[in-house]
Each structure stands twice: as C-alpha cells, then as structure tokens.
C-alpha cells in the first residue's frame, strides 16, 4: 500500500516535472483559461483516482482471500 502510494506520488512528480519542462506554456494555458476551472477538474479527478485505487487494492485482497478459503 505505502510502497505503491509512494511510487505513485514519485511517478506523478516525475511526470509533471517532465511535462512542465517540455511544454510549459501549453499546459499552463489550459489551466489558466476560463477562470482556472480546469484546476478544479484536475483536483477532483485526482481524488477520484485515489478512491478507485483504494477499491482496486481492496478487490485484489478480497479475491486472494476467496481463493484461499476455497482450498
């Protein structure tokens, strides 16, 4: 869990720093136009992805338990 979270965080940081180095203007423009509404979209999406991530982890654990209990 933690390992994956840290990995996710690190890869996210690496990703955005790459992107912001490569095409700073294009990305920044999308976020700055129309009252920066896209920042809100990005934030809500990140939280949604986080909750989905939790669900996937839980599902994996439950299927493992199901397999074990069948034996």
């Amino acid at each position: 869990m933690t390992k994956k979270t840290t990995l996710l965080l690190l890869s996210f940081i690496a990703f955005i720093s790459n992107v912001s180095l490569a095409q700073d203007n294009a990305i920044e423009q999308t976020f700055h136009e129309s009252g920066k509404i896209n920042v809100v979209v990005a934030v809500v999406m990140v939280i949604f992805i986080g909750i989905i991530f939790y669900l996937i982890k839980l599902e994996k654990k439950i299927s493992k338990l199901e397999k074990n209990s069948d034996k």
């Binding site: 976020f31 700055h32 990140v46 939790y54």
Partner: peptide
C-alpha cells in the same frame, strides 16, 4: 495509518496542483 497515508497523498497532490496555478 494506511488510509491516512492515502488521504495524505491525495492532499499533497491536489494541493500541489492548486498551488501551482494560483
């Protein structure tokens, strides 16, 4: 602690995005 770390990661990422553009 695991759930707390998940929320911490979400808080850090969303905060970082928000701070960057304001």
């Amino acid at each position: 602690v695991n759930i707390g770390l998940l929320f911490a990661a979400l808080g850090l990422i969303t905060g970082s995005i928000w701070a960057k553009f304001t």
